[in-house]
Structures are given as C-alpha cells and as structure tokens.
C-alpha cells in the first residue's frame, strides 16, 4: 500500500505519497533530495543517518516515514543559517573532526543531541555517548575535541 505523509523538515512543510515500507531516510534522500543524511549500514549501528525528530536524535534508517508523519524533522541541511555554520559544525571544521565526510552529518546531529542532554560532558562521557556512531577515518580523537570545544561555545 501507499500512504500519505506530511511533516515539517528543516522548518518547511513537506508531504508525499510513499510506499508504506519507505524509511524516513529514503523519504529524505529520494523524495526530498536531502542527500546529506547518509546510509552506512543496514543494522542500525553506524549512525550516518541520524536526524532529529522533534528535537531528539534518531536513526532515520530505522524509522518509517509513516512514523515521522506530523513531526518536525531536522537534518544536517537545516543547521546552518544564512551561510553561517552551527557552532557544532564550526567546531568540527576548526578541529578537523572529519575526513571523508560520510559519517559527518550523523556525527554532527548526534553531537548536538548529546549536548542538549549533557551540556558539559567529559571525555569519557563523550566517547561513551558516541556509541551509536561509527567513523572509520578520524580515529575519533578530533571528534571528541570538537565536541568539547562546541560545549564551551554553546554555553553548557
């Protein structure tokens, strides 16, 4: 069956008619062409697909588009305002917390959610909280540094 879904994505109302089996990440990438949200695995572990639903980080590869119907979704494309990077994006750039860039959108979305819940995490907490995100390039060292730096800027 197909179903109608409607939601707010990055502040804009969007809608579509999709197969019931459509995942949120497919709806974002294929219907809305918001290809910043990536798919790196099929077992809900890599975190490349993390977006926010109603302000909370979720894996959009393990959420049906139907489950996001009526919600507010924020993706990596919705963070920068008027060409100015979000402090977390800025911290990732400043601290070289990305290399190939593929896990980066999920990392940034997860990191923002982390600071929402834990404003001033220590290193061990950051490392533990990154349990749902895999990066194969950076060795995590600079990601940890970037999140620590962003926590200071974001006033936690």
């Amino acid at each position: 069956m197909t179903i109608a879904v409607a939601m707010k994505v990055n502040g804009k109302a969007v809608s579509g008619q999709v197969e019931a089996r459509t995942l949120l990440v497919q709806f974002l990438r294929e219907n809305l062409r918001l290809t910043g949200t990536h798919v790196g695995c099929d077992t809900s572990q890599c975190g490349a697909c993390v977006v926010h639903i109603n302000g909370k980080a979720v894996k959009s590869c393990t959420t049906l588009a139907a489950q996001a119907d009526g919600t507010e979704v924020t993706t990596i494309e919705g963070l920068a305002r008027d060409g100015k990077l979000h402090p977390m994006q800025e911290a990732f750039r400043e601290h070289h917390a990305l290399q190939c860039g593929f896990c980066t959108p999920g990392m940034v979305m997860s990191a923002i959610d982390m600071l929402r819940r834990i404003p001033r995490p220590d290193e061990a907490t950051i490392r533990h909280e990154l349990e749902g995100n895999i990066c194969r390039c950076t060795g995590y060292h600079n990601i940890v540094k970037a999140i620590q730096a962003a926590a200071k800027v974001m006033g936690g």
Binding site: Q45, A57, V58, K59, S110, D113, G132
Partner: peptide, 9 residues
C-alpha cells in the same frame, strides 16, 4: 540499551 538514538525510539 543500544545507543542514544536507539534509546530515543
């Protein structure tokens, strides 16, 4: 359980 994102859902 799982990871932060999994725990949200």
């Amino acid at each position: 359980i799982g990871d932060p994102h999994v725990r949200h859902r």
